[in-house]
């Protein structure tokens, strides 16, 4: 089994966390393996945990594509406050193009 570090936020309930989660002082928050539920997600958020290890069931190119897709979704969310004015739309396009190009080259 290959563990992979992923963002906590988009994880669906029931996903199994496969590595212990500790706070930055090393105190254990969650003992693995444990399936994610809403209460656990809230607890991790409260301790500022943004990423957890899950089992990586993906293969090759599919993995890269999923990473890119996840990054794209997170990026679009971060840019959601930029409005629909001409300058804001142009900036949004520039940011998306530049960041996507970077990640595409990184995963190639």
């Amino acid at each position: 089994m290959k563990p992979v570090l992923v963002r906590l936020e988009p994880l669906t309930i029931g996903t199994v966390i496969v590595s212990d989660v500790a706070d930055p002082r090393g105190r254990l928050l969650v003992k693995a393996p444990v399936p994610l539920d809403e209460a656990l997600k809230d607890l991790l958020r409260q301790h500022g945990v943004r990423e957890v290890f899950i089992e990586d069931r993906r293969k090759g190119g599919e993995e890269s594509e999923k990473v890119l897709q996840s990054e794209r979704e997170m990026l679009l969310r971060r840019l959601a406050f930029l409005g629909d004015g001409h300058a804001e739309k142009a900036l949004k396009t520039l940011l998306i193009e530049t960041i996507e190009k970077f990640y595409t080259e990184l995963t190639e």
Binding site: L75, R77, R78, L79, F81, L82, T98
Partner: peptide
């Protein structure tokens, strides 16, 4: 924008457009 957001606010603010104009940062430089 590059994913190191604030823990309490994850969005890029619209004010960035004014700021880029103020420092005359064009698309190529950005």
């Amino acid at each position: 924008a590059v994913g190191k957001e604030h823990p309490d606010f994850v969005f890029v603010e619209p004010g960035i457009v004014r700021a880029l104009n103020h420092l005359r940062i064009d698309d190529r430089l950005l």
